[in-house]
Design a binder for these strands. Structure first.
Length: 838
RNA sequence: GCGAAAGUGGCGGAACUGGUAGACGCGCUGGGUUCAGGACCCAGUGGGGGCAACUCCGUGGGGGUUCGACUCCCCCCUUUCGCACCA
């Protein structure tokens, strides 16, 4: 274990850097002393640092490791800066993989999940993460999910949870319904199976009640990545327009449509209903068109979302034979059913204005419907017969009765008033955002606390009966919801009338679990409410949230909605859950995302086994800035290992600097002076890179430079200079402190070796003197006509005049300027002198 | 199609407010140490020319602003990501 070397004839033994020994040693010590436990303290400034909690698959992969390396470095840095830091970890423990394991391998989902959690926790501990493990939680435990149920009931009282029938997304592979946010490109977000439509009566959360607030508050999230905000904005999809009612000819039925272009109402020449529209059947019932139309409807419903939204396909429709009246003109036009109109947006009915909407134009040309120009292009004269495409720009209103001659944009408000006055339309705002479908036909989730009674209807489970526990007497056959196989669960008496009733067997979307967990960490064992309001008021909101971009809409939008909902229940003052968001980049290898199918996975545990956690962490943070992709490099890891070895040796070989009475660094010697300055400069750079820029890669490279310089200093006999030993000792001391957030085990070990008895994480982060954080002499560049022609040294605070004279006095510069006219001299102190000659 | 981000040595990346392009690391080359390999230490390393001082070219391409552009403006190309009949 000890390597014998001979240095200068004196036998010397230097211990070797052995992460395998020092890492467990410090992990045990941190745990036994409770170093990272956090307690509310109104006297101290709090900082809540949080990583997206993982689904406990049992495998901790490089993406996780990167996530935690970033968060832990930041949390440790903030602690040393004096903040009262909350840094917890938990497990998003409900979900399909556990249930699938139950089906295929006959294991209990609870057991499967708990053992996966233990495996992940084991690797997390091994990484040396500074979590307050006392606050850990798992969403599959009744102590947690009972509060999902509680919140559900409160939301229900507030009208934020309700049940309705609707055509919903169904994943045939996962055998459950999905929320709109969970359908990506027509496929299931989890397994990518093509999603089908099903008519079901399901539970929803009324996220649309907060559509405007969710949109407006994005503006205030200054420290969120722009692209996440844009994605949320597009998802909410607010558009201003009008709702217009049309009377069906020969009937009392009204059809309501949403449009962003009420100014084109005079140009309506037909109307289209979505296949799912509730009026379709009613309209054609008993007519000779009934058979053909209903066949078309069935065919459209059969198609998957992908087929229906394929833009390359021609729009197909069918005339219902029925007509409606355009209230603006009094004319009669046909009603079609077409596949390009979807029930999900607006009212599922669209007014057709071929002259001014490209889709309508194509549809009209195909089915021989009239085109009527009502907005005239100011430069060209649009002619209905010759138009090749719709005119979608602004212009002057024509063929529009009292509005003729007015610019369409300007006339819009008046037009809406006109419709309102005449009672057939009104200003309206449309959203793409739909209410959040939360029912899932699966077992491993939170039971929805509802009882169905033939007499009383939907009865909420009384609060005192919570939690509604997941039963264990269930069959995992792979067919249907296992909950429905539990008699003890299903059969219940109605809380109101005591007659036999049955429980809801659907469970909640697991995104509910992750929508409020940051609150729960503030007191995870609290049993009177989801969280202790006083404690949450101290810690919330999360100051720094770190996670993958894949949750840009899903989790982050739901959590924002929940926070607003909880606020309106009077449980918190927070409007937003996450003040700052960092979306980390992917970890890739050989140009592709690390995945089992690619065979390019680097196992986290193996990494740590070989090099230790500190090396893995330093490499991950050094190789790339956090929000960018990280290209894995085995050789790069070697480099980080070598660096930590160098730091270890630098300290261990110079312990004598710390054993004697500490010598103060003095600036008497030129070498000492520059080392002192470099130390201050490095402290400044590392502090700012972590704090302001979140750039751990440049912070670490600055530490490397300092280490290189200390080595050169010692090798070049710098210790013999006046104050040399002091300057070296202080530089080494700073190095250990600066590296602590990145390589915490090594830092503790070296801190102890240099004579300290308390954890380095109880130590203040080093400070710097701004005056000393600049070099004594800076290199100046002299440019002649934009090209670097000479260099000279000068103190950084030299005046412009002196710098200019010095530059012009350089022989080479004199040579070049001789006989030429000096047009201009630009002097940037500390940088350059730029001379323009002719 | 629309929107966003990004293109810098052999590689990962730096250059923060327009001011020495390539910090730091990897790799590579030469040397030292070693029985040897590894590890370690020293030196070099964008391309071309030159013995050298030095010089020309160089941040996806083209133009522009400026004493000065990786950085700002315009056009184009490529890549990645997101959205995609949104009425």
């Amino acid at each position: 274990m000890f390597l014998m070397t001979l240095a200068g004839g004196i036998p010397m033994s230097t211990p070797r850097y052995s992460p395998r020994e020092i890492e467990p040693k410090w992990q045990d010590l941190w745990e036994s002393t409770g170093l990272y436990r956090s307690v509310e303290d109104p006297e101290r400034e709090k900082f809540y640092c949080l990583e997206m909690f993982p689904y406990p698959s049992g495998d901790l992969h490089m993406g996780h490791m990167r996530n935690y390396a970033i968060g832990d470095a930041y949390a440790r840095f903030l602690r040393m800066k004096g903040f009262n830091v909350l840094y917890p970890m938990g497990y998003d423990a409900f979900g399909l993989p556990a249930e699938n394991a139950a089906i295929t391998r006959k294991v209990d989902p609870g057991q499967w999940t708990r053992s996966s959690i233990e495996r992940m926790k084991h690797v997390q501990r091994r990484m040396g993460l500074s979590y307050d493990w006392n606050r850990t939680l798992a969403t599959c435990e009744p102590e947690y999910y009972r509060w999902n149920q509680w919140i559900f009931l409160k939301f229900m009282e507030k009208g934020l949870a309700y049940r309705k029938s609707a055509p919903v997304n169904w994943c045939p592979s996962c055998q459950t319904v999905l929320a709109n946010e969970q359908v990506e490109g027509g496929g299931c977000w989890r397994c990518h199976t093509t999603v089908l439509k099903k008519d079901l009566k399901q539970w929803f959360f009324k996220i649309t009640a907060y559509a405007d607030e969710l949109l407006e508050d994005l503006e205030r999230l200054d420290d969120w990545p722009e692209r996440v905000k844009v994605m949320q904005k597009n998802w909410i999809g607010r558009s201003v327009g009008a709702e217009i009612d049309f009377k069906v000819t020969g009937s009392d039925q009204m059809i309501s449509t949403f449009t962003t272009r009420p100014d084109t109402v005079f140009g309506i020449t037909y109307m289209v209903l979505a296949a799912e529209h509730s009026l379709v059947e009613l309209l054609v019932h008993g007519t000779d068109r009934a058979e053909a139309v209903m066949a078309f409807v069935e065919e459209a419903k059969e198609k998957t979302l992908i087929e229906r939204t394929d833009e390359t396909l021609e729009k197909k429709g069918i005339d219902t034979g029925r007509t409606f009246v355009n209230p603006a003109t009094g004319e009669e036009f046909p009603i079609y059913v077409a596949d390009y109109v979807v029930m999900e947006y607006g009212t599922g009915a669209v007014m057709g204005v071929p002259a001014h909407d490209q889709r309508d134009f194509e549809f009209a040309r195909k089915y021989g419907l009239p085109v009527r120009v009502v907005i005239q292009d100011p430069t060209l004269s649009l002619r209905e017969e010759t138009m090749a495409e719709a005119y979608v720009e602004d212009g002057t209103m024509v063929n529009s009765g009292p509005f003729d001659g007015r610019p369409n944009r300007e006339a819009m408000p008046d037009f809406i008033n006109y419709m309102e006055d005449n009672g057939w339309g009104r200003g309206a705002v449309g959203y793409r955002l739909r209410d959040w479908l939360i029912s899932r036909q699966r077992y491993w989730g939170t039971p929805i606390p509802i009882i169905y009674c033939d007499r009383c209807g939907e009865v909420p489970v009384p609060e005192e009966d919570l939690p509604v526990l997941l039963p264990t007497d269930v069959q995992f056959s792979g067919e249907g919801n296992p909950l429905a196989t539990s008699k003890t669960f299903l059969e219940v008496s109605c809380p109101v009338c005591r007659e036999p009733a049955r429980r809801e067997t659907d469970t909640m979307d697991t995104f509910i679990d992750s929508s409020w967990y940051p609150f729960r960490y503030t007191d995870p064992s609290y049993d009177k409410a989801p969280f202790d309001q006083a404690k949450a008021a101290y810690w919330m909101p999360v100051d720094q949230y770190i996670g993958g971009i894949e949750h840009a809409i899903l989790h982050l939008l739901y959590a924002r909605f929940f926070t607003k909902g909880l606020r309106d229940l009077g449980l918190t003052d927070a409007d937003e859950p996450f003040r700052r968001l960092l979306t980390q980049g992917m970890v890739i290898k050989d140009g592709a995302k690390m995945s089992k199918s690619m065979g390019n996975v680097v196992p986290a545990e193996e990494m740590m086994e070989r090099y230790g956690a500190d090396t893995a962490r330093v490499f991950i943070l050094f190789a790339s800035p956090p929000e960018k992709e990280l290209e894995w490099s085995d050789q790069g890891v070697e480099g980080s290992y070598r660096f930590l070895n160098r730091v270890f040796r630098l300290v261990m070989e110079n312990l004598s600097l710390f054993s004697a009475e500490p010598e103060r660094a003095v600036e008497d010697d030129e070498n000492s002076r520059s080392l002192i300055r470099l130390r201050h400069k490095t402290v400044k750079k590392v502090s700012e890179d972590i704090e302001r820029r979140f750039q751990f890669n440049t912070a670490i490279s600055a530490i490397m430079e300092l280490v290189n310089e200390i080595q050169r200093f010692i090798a070049g006999n710098g210790l013999n200079g006046a104050g040399g030993a002091g300057a070296a000792a202080e530089a080494i001391r700073a190095t250990i402190l600066l590296i602590a957030p990145f390589a915490p085990h090594l830092a503790e070990e070296l801190w102890e070796a240099t004579g300290h008895h308390k954890s380095i994480f109880l130590q203040q982060w080093p400070t710097f003197d701004p005056e000393l954080a600049v070099s004594e002499m800076v290199q100046m560049v002299v440019q002649v006509n934009g090209k670097v022609r000479a260099r000279f040294e000068a103190p950084p605070d030299t005046t412009r005049e002196v710098l200019q004279d010095a530059a012009l006095a350089i022989p080479r510069v004199r040579e070049m300027t001789e006989g030429k006219e000096v047009l201009k001299v630009v002097v940037v102190p500390g940088r350059l002198v730029s001379i323009v000659i002719r």
